[in-house]
Design a protein around this nucleic acid. Sequence first.
RNA 1: GCCCGCUUAGCUCAGCUGGUAGAGCAACUGACUCUUAAUCAGUAGGUCUAGGGUUCGAAUCCCUGAGCGGGUACCA
Length: 502
Amino acid sequence: MAKDKIRNDRLGKLAALKQLNADPYGSRALITGMVEDVRALCPEETPEEGRASVVTVAGRVVALRDMGKSKWLDLLDRTGKIQVNLIQKRSVDIWEQAKHLDVGDFLEVTGILQKSKTGEVTIFGNSFRFLSKSLESLPAKWTGLRDVEIRYRRRYLDLIANEDSRKTFITRSRIISFIRAFLDREKFLEVETPMLQAIYGGAAARPFVTHHNALDIDLFMRISPETYLKRLLVGGLDRVYEINRNFRNEGIDTSHNPEFTMIEIYQAYADYEVMMDLTETLVSSAAREILDTTKITFGEHKIDVAAPWPRKSIHELVREVAGVNPEDDEAMKAKLASAGFAKEKLSGLDHDHLLGKVMDEIVEPTLINPTFVTHHPASLNPLCKRNRDKPELSDRFEVIVAGMELANAFSELNDPLEQRARFEAQVARADEEGYCNAVDEDYVSALEVGMPPAGGLGIGIDRLVMLLTGNPSIREVILFPTLKPRTPEELAEAMAETEEEE
RNA sequence: GCCCGCUUAGCUCAGCUGGUAGAGCAACUGACUCUUAAUCAGUAGGUCUAGGGUUCGAAUCCCUGAGCGGGUACCA
């Protein structure tokens, strides 16, 4: 195969370099700076003899133009590309090594920084050193790498070949840094709470189960850090947040990955309305800081994340968007049926679930710009405070953008007696709702010690990054999204299991 | 889970109603000291996703499986 042939050729070059006493896998490079910074040092005019500045950079060769006794190459690091020229005459002693250069190799280059005749910033190399010899050819520079399966499984190739992808992940990192800086400024404390939990809760999702050998107990990968963060409010850490992974054992699609990054933020003495202010400020200022604009193109949609965002109750939205009376179950059923839903599926739904269905199916797809959807039925979330005036509703909101749930927040229930009662009701329905596996007595007894009223907020970081980078698929913003195993050994194993099942 | 689509050289892709596989780039050899998708001349490279079937003959048609993508269901 061509692939093996290339590898053998490169192994030959590796051996040749060793013959020349050159280490193909060099160590520490003493660079002048990153490519971007070095480029900025380049003088406009060619300097006089003896006054030129000598710089050292390191990076991967991504293009090689061979002209016999001269070679031009492009060196890439995270910040950009810089052109390098090597001439036999100027670097006689290492010219033999230069003959073994390939696209893909990492080099350290030292030379004079000045523009070429065509105006390109160039390092005219006096010397270079191999930092790493590549044994596999990179994807063709011009066509890039489009095969999504290779892009996800071998993300390093994607990052080398596709600048868009590289930018997406750099932006992701900057978004997270921005959020941390923002919350630190507001005197929030970043904390870490258990990912291995004996009792899981804080959301409605099925968990991953794992096993601890020494304790000989099953543990659950957390579906949410919520109850642990609120224990910290009880402990007096009155503003906390955690950015980390949650795990939900459910379907995979363009907005769901089994492990995903959430930020949860809890602020004592606040409520859900304070969290609305926080959410729209956080997101819109992140956009302004990182994108320099609040206007975003997302798939088909033009979205503006500038604050303030409209705040609408579920009842208002059902009335305005779906055009039905939210108190009239039959009208909602008729509406859903006319939208193509099977009547037999609708008959089993109670009032609260009917409302949820109308929201999910009819209202949310129409919400493109960020919208606070408020006052969900209290029965749907046992951790959420009831609305004072309408106790059948909760003081809660979700943020919907481009039809997708971006954030979820509420005033935290801090009455331990009501909390226990709601947990018990939930466990009784656990089979159908899958909300939690047991009453979390430890959490309830924490509430009995006393938890201040608080606003709690969760934002899906992956979805926020999707929004701010204009990527309509969550796999484009997760470096290594969950995929089925594909290596020969893994495949053989998977096949064997399939056969056993049959 | 169900439905639809995709899978051909290292990469990006052609390949019609079935006639035995092609291009560009990358690679290799040679020429070339200001190129930048370098150029020029030449060479090599394939289990057409896997298995089975129909056929004189299958990348192409049929069946089964795999991976990936999209939709749908599930996910308050």
